[in-house]
Design a protein around this nucleic acid. Structure first.
Lengths: 343, 343
DNA sequence: CTGTTAGCGCTTTCAC
DNA sequence: GTGAAAGCGCTAACAG
């Protein structure tokens, strides 16, 4: 495979009878170069379609203009949207993005960190895998001075930049909405509690109940992993209780949809017998039967904000750690309405 | 931002009283190094947690172990899944992936190519943007010797590697399925004809009609761009014809769902009055009302195959151009069934 | 089997 | 304002 040999700074220097240093300076816009020289260099460079060899620049400058991104899975629509936002901001600023998937495995995530260190990325953006209990690999990254931003699934450590949605508030609002609707027994399908945002959402749920004088019942709280294949199981278990819930606040839209499916099979009506709310407001929520209420998290914006913050961090001298909370929005559809006109 | 200075080959050489070349050789598993020396080097390297500086390697070897990927949009679930497959194979083989989005714009796509050339990637995988009419930018890539693989939305050029699904066959089968169902007037919502696969799908549709002695009616063929916001418009137009279609074969599931929504508003029953089939078999098709028939394209596999082929190409001496067709599967659900038991 | 030397292409002191 | 020289960290002839 023969790749057309590229024009180098040396070629330009030779043709113009200059030294490579002058050419380098001219090209980089260094001011103490004679305007005429600069012009000549730039003109010839353009004419020869000169492209600086980034590999040489990288070695010299010890930076790559590459950002490493670790997400659980790119096929997950939430992360796909975040990624889209990340990429757009990166491209705008002349950075490239290397994406790695942890596939929800801690071991893979650790390996991803090593890959990124090895690739000498300029910074890292990550969202934790469900399985991750130990954060040593990210500590390593921090210790080596890598700028680091977490989003959505973030560690507790307040000493690191984090972009999250208003998990407590949104869960509170969703739960309160179900209560306002008349639900007396609201169940919550929650994620693993070692994940920060799952704890916040659970807290929002509990506080909303409390505010309305409804006692929290642990048997109405289902603890799942994400991507669990046990939706049918726990739904049946919930509904076969002596006092089955009349409202279910699910961990995400996918789970909500499968819960509804199970409820239908069990001959419950949604929302008349059981109201259901999901999370993430995937676009198809509008088209399922009944249309699904959900909480919209601006994933694309979250991606943009994360990349923005990371780039800021890279260009700051002082290490800055900022926490950004992105507001979500409760989207009410028929799965959580009773005798009310659709909004 | 101080980054912990890394151990270099020189450090190891000094501590062991060797030359850097010997260390380099030992590390790279070069055979003509004394076993004892090799052991000593490897041991010390491990002990010092030596990581080769890829930036130096890259410059020296003129390769980056980075693959550039250009997709229309990462938030598109189809591409998100392909990406997942691509990434997994790349990681397995020690390659990293830089992802770029064309956002369905030809200008952005051209720019993406320049970014990748500039980044000195080892190869490129791409799926064309809807807007792309001119392929000079990819010609440039080929001319410079970059290994290149297209998938899904590929150019006509037989002189390039392409991974596609069996577009003709799947469209043929889907159309025939509608005919078997009793549809006499099957409409097709098609994509832009400058895209190769849209032409094949249209051809499959037409040939199926022809096989069954049904004349092709151009007014049953809707030409859309992807991501068009005119679903309601063309659906109404179709249904307001004197002889409205009794079957619609849509460009993708999203369109199909919105078509169904419009049909419902117009008081048509699906599938009794109009049967509908989508494309891509998104997971939510199972949960919409009625559950949507579709054609399943193994996107993840397509991603894997593309990366596999590209890596082969990179490691081959001779440039190989291979065409791979990945079989799809017709998934029949209630939106295209009449009085038949669900499969 | 090992060391010396050169160089990948660029940036950046340090002289002049 | 410009050039010479050094070096980023590694690999690979070429000698020995």
């Amino acid at each position: 495979m023969i790749r057309k040999s590229n024009v180098t700074i040396k070629d330009i220097a030779n043709k113009l009878g200059l030294s490579t240093s002058t050419v380098s300076r001219a090209l980089s816009g260094n001011k103490d170069v004679h305007p005429k020289t600069r012009e000549a260099v730039k003109e010839l460079a353009a004419q020869l379609d000169y492209q600086p060899n980034v590999l040489a620049q990288n070695l010299k400058m010890q930076q790559t203009h590459i950002i490493g991104v670790i997400i659980p899975e790119s096929a997950n629509p939430f992360y796909a949207r975040v990624l889209s936002g990340l990429l757009n901001v990166a491209t705008q600023h002349g950075y490239n993005v290397i994406t790695l998937q942890s596939m929800e495995s801690e071991a893979a995530e650790k390996n991803n960190v090593d890959v990124l260190i090895n690739a000498r990325v300029d910074g890292v953006i990550a969202s934790l895998s469900v399985a991750t209990m130990n954060l040593d690999h990210f500590e390593k990254l921090k210790a080596r001075g890598y700028p680091l931003v977490f989003f959505d699934r973030v560690p507790d450590d307040p000493d690191v930049s984090r972009i999250v949605s208003d998990n407590y508030d949104s869960a509170f609002r969703a739960t309160e909405h179900l209560i306002d609707l008349g639900c007396k027994r609201v169940a919550r399908v929650n994620g693993p509690l070692h994940l920060n945002h799952c704890r916040w959402r659970l807290r929002g749920y509990k506080d909303a109940l409390e505010k309305h004088g409804i006692p929290v019942r642990e048997d109405y709280i289902v603890h799942t992993r994400y991507h669990a294949y046990d939706v049918e199981l726990y739904t049946k278990k919930l509904m076969n209780m002596p006092e089955p819930p009349d409202g279910i606040f699910a961990i995400n839209d996918k789970a909500a949809i499968e819960i509804i499916k199970t409820l239908k099979i069990m001959k419950y009506r949604v929302p008349e017998d059981v109201a259901v709310i999901g999370f993430n407001n995937e676009f198809y929520g509008e088209f399922v039967d009944p249309p699904l209420s959900s909480i919209e998290i601006p994933a694309y914006e979250m991606g943009r904000a994360s990349m923005q913050l990371l780039l800021d961090q890279i260009h700051e001298d002082e290490p800055i750690h900022r926490q950004v909370t992105i507001p979500s929005r409760l989207v009410i559809r028929e799965s959580s309405q009773r005798g009310v006109v659709s909004i």
